[in-house]
Amino acid sequence: MKAIVSVIGTDKRGIIAKVTTALWEMNINVEDISQTIMQNYFTMIMLVDLSEANKTFDEVSSSLDEVGKSTGVEIRIQSEAIFQAMHRI
């Protein structure tokens, strides 16, 4: 399953490092990254591949949630398919 990880929060050092480390530990490959600063907020989305992940979707979601709390940003993971369905004909 392909998923979109979105990260939003106040910009600070190490956000990308912490998120990608967590993903690496769960054996999740990052296929694409897009990042910008919007209205002073760090905003990043990553396309990730969960097919070889060593955790379930629920566990991945909880782990990223914890990383978000400890880093002070909001992280969520959602199936890429829902965005494709909504935004692509």
Binding site: S6, D32, S34, T43, I45, L47, F83, H87
Partner: peptide, 8 residues
């Protein structure tokens, strides 16, 4: 890839 704006 889906864009940041679309996700937001």
């Amino acid at each position: 890839m889906i864009s940041i704006n679309e996700v937001l």
